[in-house]
């Protein structure tokens, strides 16, 4: 498990070069990516479905990204985009096509559904965290304007 988490950290680190993320944030992005995969594996080990695991992992990523964005005074997208990469359903897309070619429509539609479910779980997690932090910000602003 540790091996996988370390390679998730490294893969996100290399990915920051492709996304042109400033070097001073590359380490933070890698940490977010590592946490993502760690949470995912932890959820899978505790008998979560892959969809639920993707949800929890993305939730962790989104919260951590929001925190880093505030401490580093940078757009959230920097950490969010790099951090969710390990859960992005790339394998699902590939297997869907692979079985489609192999004339196996059952497997193909199964993986298509898996891909859509994972994508939906990631979307949900990001949405929930976005809304949550907007509420937090609202109360912070109100406190500031009153106090």
């Amino acid at each position: 498990m540790m091996f996988q988490v370390v390679s998730a950290v490294l893969s996100v680190y290399f990915f920051t070069m492709l996304l042109e993320i400033p070097k001073r944030y590359a380490l933070y992005c890698s940490i977010v990516g590592g946490v993502n995969w760690w949470v995912y594996l932890l959820a899978i080990e505790n008998s979560a479905s892959s969809m639920a695991a993707a949800f929890f992992a993305s939730l962790a990523v989104a919260i951590l990204s929001q925190i880093f964005a505030r401490t580093q005074k940078t757009p959230v997208n920097v950490f969010l985009v790099a951090g969710i990469l390990p859960t992005v359903p790339g394998g699902g897309i590939y297997r869907c096509v692979y079985y489609f070619i192999r004339n196996n429509p059952n497997q193909s539609s199964y993986y298509l559904l898996q891909t859509l479910k994972t994508a939906g779980a990631i979307a949900m997690a990001i949405f929930i965290t976005d809304s949550l932090f907007r509420v937090v910000q609202y109360y912070q602003n109100r406190k500031a304007s009153i106090g």
């Binding site: 390679s7 998730a8 893969s11 680190y13 290399f14 070069m17 492709l18 400033p22």
Partner: peptide, 24 residues
């Protein structure tokens, strides 16, 4: 401005391929 040169991009593509393998 360009932050990463072509060489870094090249390295990045290889690195991503290598380190995503254990994840799958």
């Amino acid at each position: 401005d360009k932050l990463y040169t072509k060489r870094w991009k090249f390295l990045g593509l290889i690195g991503v391929s290598v380190f995503f393998a254990p994840i799958f």
